[in-house]
Design a protein around this nucleic acid. Structure first.
Lengths: 244, 244
DNA sequence: GAGTGGTCTAGACCACCAA
DNA sequence: TGGTGGTCTAGACCACTCA
């Protein structure tokens, strides 16, 4: 289990345990929402003390990959909790009102990836990708135009019916139908003016300022799995961010 | 030191220690950049074990309020490190090029706070605030128009000369001149069109899309100390954000 | 009451740094 | 070489949950 500590490859024991737990997550040994073995059981399995397992789980919990529940156990985190809404969709109403988003699918088709898209998703140039376009409506009015690109190989079976069954909660769908869970994302924000196409889609005048959010999402092991471009009307909404 | 554990006010020991350390930081017992006592010294002072002090420091280090340096000691975090640039100014060049920002002060005056501003800064309505306006230039071209508001009572002595001496690094100035260190901030982002005044300030056409960043910054103990509105040209720059 | 995570301690040893 | 933070262990006890 352990290595010589002077080796340049040396990792603390608890990080090696953390890797082993992550491997089990990737392998699907414990599904999202399920409980993992207790700290003492894992300590036995890996032949270390409970404190060491605890420190590994501490880090995974800080990364929101695992969730602790006192008295019950430690669980694989899920996108079905309310809390996640704000984590990956940071748009909130300016007046603090409650969000009631509606999903309107525009298209869902398989095409060949551009060189740029292949690079972003770390797949071979020319691989097939799924392109989804949709509108998110806030109390009936179009708020966000989303353009989503997924590597088709990993997202077999994704189609219009499936997306509509989840009412547009893409991350929940990935998780429940495909066992793919996003653990982090990188976003690039800019302000742009609506072009003719966007203006039509969102019922706006050409040139209306829109918040452009380009996102790449990663699953376990920092593997990019989704590219997304959201164009948002921000006259009555804010993108909320906490710097710490 | 300890309390009855069944009390509703019960806080774990290490959190009580964390509060005590935070109090010392507020009181200025250890200046930004200075080393705090060793874990064993603090354990002696508070009458707990080293492990408990360690856990308190763990949390403060995670919040970037303290900085550990193996073999040397634990230090009060500072805004002078390069790393902080990306933490509070998330605008990066689209081509990944190096940033060379220039600061051009437009105005700095003392006025009475509006009701709204007093609320945001948690000061009495009608208190005096310092209003600063400036441009940030990127290779000679205006990139950001900043409007900054500070409670005058806490920021005595802030004037044009002082700001220029720090070449626009406001947070470094607060820290070095006033001992005020920002530990977190809340930002609200929207896309807006440049009005006549902004268009003139940034040499743009009226209606050009701008990224509006409204920020409230907090010092130790979650006390709001600065309000800021930045309007950014994002044709060649992105606001970079990591969701985790 | 049994099982789980949460806290706290005491002690050992390692890795890093400076004098 | 001595002091600092970093890791690891073993054991005790507390708080929470559920049958």
């Amino acid at each position: 289990m352990n290595q010589v500590k002077t080796s340049p490859l040396f990792q603390p024991l608890y990080r090696q345990i953390k890797s082993l737990i992550t491997q089990s997550l990737i392998a699907g040994e414990w599904a999202p929402g399920a409980a993992i073995p207790s700290e003492f059981d894992l300590a036995d399995r890996y032949g270390v003390s409970q404190g060491t397992v605890r420190k590994a789980i501490d880090e995974l919990a800080a990364e929101k990959i695992l969730m602790r529940r006192q008295g019950k156990g430690t669980y694989v985190a899920t996108h079905s909790e309310e809390e996640v809404k704000l984590r990956f969709l940071r748009l909130v109403a300016a007046d603090g009102g409650k969000e009631l988003l509606d999903n309107q699918l525009l298209s869902c088709e398989r095409v060949k990836a551009s060189a740029e898209m292949a690079r972003l998703l770390a797949i071979k140039a020319g691989s097939v990708v799924i392109e989804i376009k949709r509108l998110l409506l806030f109390s009936g009015k179009p708020l966000i135009h989303d353009h989503i690109v997924l590597p088709a190989a990993a997202f077999k079976g994704v189609n219009t019916a499936l997306i509509e069954r989840y009412n547009g909660s893409m991350y929940r769908m990935y998780e429940s139908e495909l066992g793919i869970r996003m653990v982090r994302a990188e976003e690039r924000l800019t302000a742009i003016g609506a072009d003719a196409q966007m203006a039509a889609a969102l019922s706006l005048k050409v040139g209306t300022p829109l918040l452009s959010i380009e996102r790449v999402s990663f699953t376990y092991g920092d593997k990019p799995m989704e590219w997304r471009l959201g164009l948002c009307l921000t006259d009555k909404h804010h993108y909320l961010n906490h710097l710490e």
